[in-house]
Design a protein around this nucleic acid. Structure first.
Lengths: 206, 206
DNA sequence: TCAATATTTGACACAGTTGTTAAACAAATG
DNA sequence: CATTTGTTTAACAACTGTGTCAAATATTGA
């Protein structure tokens, strides 16, 4: 086995990532993962105990992917609110465009099993309340200084997340309803990277 | 069987609605539906052929629930853009707050089987393109008249939908991440009915 | 009360999924 | 070449879920 090549173990994880993310835990068959990886089911158990074990590995990775960058921006200090918004929007849309099924996957799995959020959240050392608080404080300060219109930090945060995440979550619906192809959709998302930040800033600036 | 009482058939459909909406098709067991309805599995097959039949009935109902009101507003004539936005936002948030799992259900089922959207869309006589076009025309006119900042109709539409729908879709995540209880969440959604329209209008008005 | 209808029980066949095992085979590595 | 490691094949047991059926029982309406 040459080092530069990807190992079978990685191929399996890669395949599991695809299938689990597309179909979710319940609808995924281990056979589907094996087929996607180009191996058979026995080999899958040779490397990993069972379906649940693989899922946990995948979920941890994808969970991190979904939240990590965002929390880095939350933490970032000495950045103006508007710049923070610009960074968040750009990061979220860029990341989700690269992984179009990621948000839907995380949301539906957490909806089916809310415990996952607690478990992997703490496992990755996230402290939502502290980080969220820092953003809410930042917003409250700007409101107080009357540099932006009055708005609650958590409502603004929800708005930012909504505008970035929803289009990807609802992508299968949007493609049909708006009658656009994959290529056009990508262009629309590209366009949003700029426009959404300005949309938000226009909405709140005085 | 007294007429005023709900029939067993209705009890089953009611139960199926709850379970399917919460868990989706793949993760739902007919046993779960029977238990939720307080009857046994055999009776379920006595009234309905099979799981798929029940699912189709449920999906059609919920699909209509999700899209109907929105399309009515789309169609509505002689309404200013801003009023149309206000109506859409109010309707969407009100409807989704009443049915918190509805949006996630429709989105995930359509993501698993895009054909559903085509099938039930045409079945219910929706013509997305025509309706969407009327909205895009309205926006284009306002942009042309320079009464609002330049924005594509479809981007604006996506923004409106995002701001209304995402918070409900991501509710299980938001509850934990923002550390709020059901009651507080409801209040936040109530607040959004007013604030989101104004947020949008501020974002686009000149 | 009688007959029709609704509901439960228990059993069953069938299909699908999961996880395991033994044996054979292939590839790579010393 | 001999050995280890990776992989496939085939078969299997256990379990779960679906759909069906016959018989027994309960409920209702005529």
């Amino acid at each position: 086995m040459i080092l530069a090549e990807i190992t079978t173990e990685e191929r399996i994880l890669e395949a599991a990532m695809k299938v689990f993310t597309r179909r979710g835990f319940a609808a995924t068959r281990t056979e589907d993962i094996a087929k996607e990886a180009g191996i058979n089911r026995t080999l899958l158990h040779y490397y990993f105990r069972d379906k649940q074990t693989i899922f946990n590995l995948i979920f941890e990775t994808r969970f991190k992917e979904f939240f990590k960058g965002l929390f880095l921006i939350f933490e970032a200090d000495n950045i103006s609110l508007f710049d923070k918004i610009r960074r968040m929007v750009d990061h979220e849309i860029t990341m989700l465009t690269k992984h179009p099924d990621l948000a839907r996957f995380i949301i539906t799995e957490v909806a089916h099993n809310p415990q996952l959020l607690i478990e992997y959240g703490t496992k990755l050392g996230m402290n939502p309340r502290v980080l969220k608080q820092s953003f809410e404080d930042l917003v409250a300060r700007e409101v107080n200084d009357k540099t932006i219109k009055p708005i609650e930090g958590r409502q603004l945060l929800m708005n930012i997340m909504s505008l970035c995440i929803y289009p990807l979550v609802a992508k299968p619906i949007i493609l049909t309803m708006m009658n656009v192809d994959e290529r056009t959709f990508s262009q629309m998302m590209e366009q949003r990277k700029e426009e959404v930040s300005e949309f938000i800033i226009n909405a709140i600036k005085k």
